[in-house]
Design a protein around this nucleic acid. Structure first.
Lengths: 129, 129
DNA sequence: AGGAAAGTGTCTTAAAGTGTAACTTTATGT
DNA sequence: ACATAAAGTTACACTTTAAGACACTTTCCT
């Protein structure tokens, strides 16, 4: 399994960690446990580190001294956090959990090269639309 | 962990120091504790020393005999200060804290090779825009 | 020199993060 | 269907981190 597919309903422990489903774990182990978690609207997107780097390359021709470019860079970077799979688990940063409305339960959604983390509430909302 | 990512809400002590978040610390230790802090609009930008050098290279192709370029360079250099991470903490220079409106609290924003320091007020302002 | 202000190191405490193991549920093979 | 294995959940002890306090040092000014 080298890509993220399918929908999983998982539970978070009291510190906000979840066990990575077995089918996702192999993909993560292949790319290394380093991840970048990024906030999108009302859900989170988890990038394996290599996948994130590709996005970053696209931004590299922006000028860090140009105000507009700088704002775009900030928009992108400020929502991201590095994290790591440890002992088969991922701890989502507290501020991101809060933004995504995550509590005891979450929905993982495979998106091939990345996967998403939704609160059950948001997930059902977007299912309706 | 080799880059600055994410947004952190931190507190300054009575002397204006803050604890560097663990995820930033490893990146700083990699490049050495020497930093350059410079003022941008209403926030601060912290460069690890190596990254500062690279920026200097970029700035060096500005024309030292062109009045506008010269003004931009002066603007930039005159507000920059060297500082250092000591005992895991960074002391921001008093005049820079003042310009940035920093008091007891601050927002750190990772920008990959550098990170920014915002007052909560300014940060929320720019978040709206 | 004396005093005030700024800068520095270290400790304590509470909260956040981490590893492990036992237990429950789900899946698999015969 | 049953036994077995794998996956997922929960609990708990341990470690690390961040905030705040405080004492000590250095610098600067008069």
């Amino acid at each position: 399994m080298n890509s993220f597919l399918g929908t999983y309903s998982i539970s978070l422990d009291d510190k906000g960690r979840f066990n990575v489903p077995a089918k996702f774990r192999s993909a993560l182990e292949q790319f290394g446990p380093q991840l970048v978690v990024c906030v999108m609207d009302h859900y989170l997107v988890v990038f394996p580190q290599n996948e994130w780097s590709e996005n970053e390359v696209k931004l590299s021709d922006l000028n860090a001294f140009d105000k507009n470019d700088r704002n775009r860079l900030r928009e992108f970077y400020s929502k991201a956090t590095e994290c790591e799979m440890k002992s088969g688990k991922i701890l989502l940063p507290a501020n991101q959990r809060e933004i995504a409305g995550l509590n005891k339960e979450a929905i993982l959604v495979g998106m091939s090269k990345t996967f998403e983390v939704w609160s059950p509430e948001e997930w059902h909302k977007q299912g309706q639309a």
